[in-house]
């Protein structure tokens, strides 16, 4: 009788364990803990550029210039170790055309931005260290170049082979500012969840020239040129392509 009871119990047990209850199987995993990682970062930014001296010069001389935000693409490479991060960035402004010009009457002089580029190095610290996000405060230094070309659009017909015989009435082929700057930004990035992964990133920052520097030209040696201390607010969105490591390989 006793043996029969044991056998019945043995048979009954698997039936009991079949009830897949979350109570027994579910646990919440700890947040991912990759000790270090490399990341490659393509990104895009909208930039509000402050160049007070040159812009007031443009306004004073009825020069039309672009008042919209600068659009910038950037590429970065970085290394993260725990909550610290070091990055190197370079960025390039996308072409900004003000054409087609106003053809009726006297066309205004146009200042078209040619170059907006720079390079910077950053150090950052993650203040959040949350399950799904990292929030880095980054600080860095870099160098920036901002360039205009000034010309007056005309309806003049010019055969290409003779283009050098013509010189437009008013033109400044190149007007540029080279400056060193400091840069501070707040970066929110998804926390890495896998060894090789993508992460969404966004960044809000400000860069400012170390000091006011004179505008220069590649075509002329300028004397008494206006001086500007560049300032740029930027909102950047991008992607991390990262490779992460849990610990040092033994």
């Amino acid at each position: 009788m006793k043996r029969l009871l044991y056998v019945t119990l043995l048979l009954a047990c698997p039936a009991w364990s079949q009830s897949v209850d979350s109570t027994t199987n579910f646990t919440i995993p700890l947040k991912s803990n990759f000790r270090s990682g490399f990341m490659l970062e393509p990104s895009f930014a909208y930039t509000l550029t402050q160049l007070t001296a040159i812009k007031s010069f443009f306004r004073a001389n009825q020069v039309e210039y672009n008042k919209k935000l600068d659009r910038v693409v950037a590429a970065g490479f970085g290394y993260r170790r725990q909550r610290m991060k070091a990055m190197i960035h370079s960025f390039f402004g996308l072409n900004q055309r003000l054409l087609p010009p106003k053809t009726s009457g006297n066309a205004p002089l146009i200042a078209q931005r040619l170059d907006l580029s720079g390079i910077a190095i950053f150090l950052g610290y993650d203040i959040a260290n949350a399950r799904n996000n990292r929030a880095f405060i980054n600080a860095g230094v870099g160098s920036i170049r901002y360039e205009y070309t000034l010309f007056r659009p005309t309806n003049q017909q010019v055969p290409f082979q003779t283009i050098f015989q013509y010189s437009p009435p008013v033109s400044v082929p190149s007007l540029y500012l080279d400056s060193g700057y400091w840069d501070v930004n707040v970066e929110i990035v998804q926390r890495e969840k896998r060894r090789d992964t993508f992460q969404w990133m966004s960044r809000l920052g400000y860069r400012r020239g170390f000091k006011a520097t004179s505008w220069q030209s590649e075509a002329y040696q300028l004397v008494d040129a206006p001086q500007d201390r560049i300032g740029q607010f930027y909102l950047q969105v991008g992607l991390y392509i990262s490779h992460n490591r849990s610990s040092r390989p033994n």
Binding site: S22, T23, T27, I28, P29, N132, T197, Q199, W200
Partner: peptide
């Protein structure tokens, strides 16, 4: 309950 977010996915994890 814990929100778990990865690059393309997001879900609510729960555990007693």
């Amino acid at each position: 309950a814990v929100v778990e977010v990865d690059f393309w996915s997001s879900m609510m994890l729960m555990a007693p």
